[in-house]
């Protein structure tokens, strides 16, 4: 549901909105912006050195080695595409779903590596210092935080849609 729909809701709908409606809407936008910012930055850092990112993908042992360059080529563009859709509000549900799936998958991978006691580069932000800092547990924490933000954004969006559709009805 777009912002335009929400604004077009009848004035009577105001009665159905509780005091936390607008703070929730604003914080939802903020959560979405945070996710977009982190993923966008991650994608750009990866694009700066795709060879290095491919090497980091190989260290996860997540796919056959021959696929790793292709994965490294595609993932940053996938991140950029979903971030763009998330921000533009076009196919936002699908973009959110895909990002969520990707984040859950990455978290599971990092958790596996962490539990195996292997110390490998995070691979999240290419060769930037952040990748170094996010080795091990911190990378998992960041992913969980992004998942939480994404779910919160989803929840606020749903609430807004529900109220708007009730108002329209």
């Amino acid at each position: 549901m777009s912002d335009a729909t929400m604004n077009a809701a009848p004035a009577a709908a105001g009665q159905r909105r509780d005091a936390l409606f607008y703070p929730r809407v604003v914080s939802g936008h903020f959560a979405r912006a945070c996710v977009a910012l982190v993923l966008g930055y991650a994608a750009i850092e990866k694009l700066k050195d795709l060879g290095e990112f491919a090497k980091q993908v190989r260290q996860y042992h997540v796919a056959p080695e021959m696929w790793t360059e292709a994965i490294a080529n595609i993932v940053p563009w996938f991140e950029l595409a979903t971030v763009a859709l998330l921000l533009l509000g076009l196919w936002r549900f699908e973009a959110r779903l895909l990002i969520l799936g990707m984040m859950v998958w990455f978290t599971a991978l990092k958790l596996t590596v962490y539990m195996q006691g292997r110390e490998i580069e995070c691979g999240c932000f290419g060769k930037s210092l952040l990748s170094e800092w996010l080795k091990g547990g911190w990378g998992i924490v960041l992913n969980l935080a992004l998942i939480a933000l994404l779910l919160y954004d989803w929840w606020t969006d749903r609430q807004r849609s529900t109220i708007a559709s009730k108002s329209a009805g």
């Binding site: 795709l50 190989r58 021959m66 360059e69 080529n73 940053p76 563009w77 950029l80 973009a95």
Partner: peptide
């Protein structure tokens, strides 16, 4: 969305002369 990402990646890889396999 996934297909569009692959197309973008293919375009970028051909411009940057990136390999698709190590």
């Amino acid at each position: 969305i996934i297909a569009a990402s692959v197309v973008l990646a293919a375009g970028y890889a051909s411009v940057m002369k990136r390999p698709w396999a190590p």
